[in-house]
């Protein structure tokens, strides 16, 4: 099947910015994809309504992480800080977009962060956000917003991790499902002539693997570089995680509704693996 970029329906990427390291990585990854797919960037900064409200409460107190000291939370200071972060987010977006030569826009919204981001994502085709937001403690898995987005977002999702390396290979999981085909085609488009594309075939046996490979080659015919195929018979998240780690991808591309692995496994992989993930949602 000849490669047709029109089939990849990503024209606008919504980037949730909070200036955290993961968020910066998500902007970088989004810019790479936007560059490859000729998409535009739409940056959003959400002023956390909960934080504003806490600050306005008469008894509000902030407990400092490194000293455990508590101090009254001043609403004005919180507002000043939010405005500063917003300006930083805009500057970051502008600098990145100009560096990649991508059209971009930016807006600040006030409200509950996850809900506002998921709602704003509906205006684009892909939502890019960091694994976690600004956090002072160690967090192993996904943050609240990312978790909610994985579950509820209707658009494709790019969850980035600090230390994003575009030069590393793209890895896509393939199982012949519609979601996997779309994920593979999208990957081929993103990879373009830049990096290597690795396809992890989730095949139970050799024959199936062969068929799967032929099909995948056909789906990803647009990839300008050679494709490297890997075959694994396992579909549990533990074994899959290990295999993915061995390849060490720069971006992991997953279909949301794959046949070989369930939604829960996909979500667990996203939660567990410390790699940038592109979750391709199957259109209804």
């Amino acid at each position: 099947m000849p490669f047709n970029p029109e089939e990849i329906s990503i024209r606008r990427i919504t980037v949730a910015l909070d200036c955290s390291p993961h968020s910066r990585a998500s902007l970088e990854a989004a810019a790479v994809i936007a560059g490859a797919l000729h998409a535009e960037l739409s940056g959003i900064f959400v002023e956390d309504i909960n934080l504003i409200r806490v600050a306005e409460l008469p008894f509000s107190e902030e407990i400092h992480l490194h000293t455990a000291r508590s101090e009254h939370l001043d609403p004005e200071r919180v507002m000043r800080l939010l405005r500063l972060q917003s300006r930083q987010a805009l500057a970051l977006l502008t600098e990145t977009a100009e560096r990649f030569g991508i059209p971009h826009s930016f807006r600040t919204i006030r409200g509950p962060v996850p809900a506002e981001i998921i709602a704003a994502a509906l205006e684009g085709d892909l939502l890019a956000l960091g694994r976690t937001g600004r956090t002072l403690t160690c967090r192993k898995g996904l943050g609240t917003t990312a978790k909610q987005a994985v579950r509820e977002a209707k658009t494709h999702l790019l969850i980035a991790h600090s230390g994003f390396q575009p030069a590393r290979p793209l890895l896509v999981l393939y199982d012949r499902s519609k979601a996997a085909r779309l994920a593979l085609r999208t990957s081929a488009g993103i990879a373009g002539g830049r990096g290597a594309l690795h396809v992890l075939l989730l095949a139970g046996n050799e024959r199936e693997a062969k068929t799967m490979r032929e099909e995948a080659e056909s789906v990803a015919a647009g990839a300008k570089r050679g494709i490297e195929f890997h075959v694994i018979p396992w579909t549990d998240s533990e074994m899959l995680s290990q295999c993915i780690r061995m390849i060490g991808p720069g971006l992991l591309v997953l279909g949301d509704e794959m046949e070989a692995i369930g939604k829960e496994t996909v979500h667990r992989l996203i939660d567990r693996l410390a790699y940038p993930v592109l979750l391709v949602k199957t259109p209804a």
């Binding site: 934080l51 409200r53 806490v54 902030e62 407990i63 400092h64 992480l65």
Partner: peptide
């Protein structure tokens, strides 16, 4: 709630901070 320098507690009603 995560604040710029640490944490704060706030009452919730229907999932939103009062």
């Amino acid at each position: 709630i995560r604040t710029p320098s640490g944490f704060a507690f706030a009452p919730l009603r229907k999932g939103e901070v009062l």
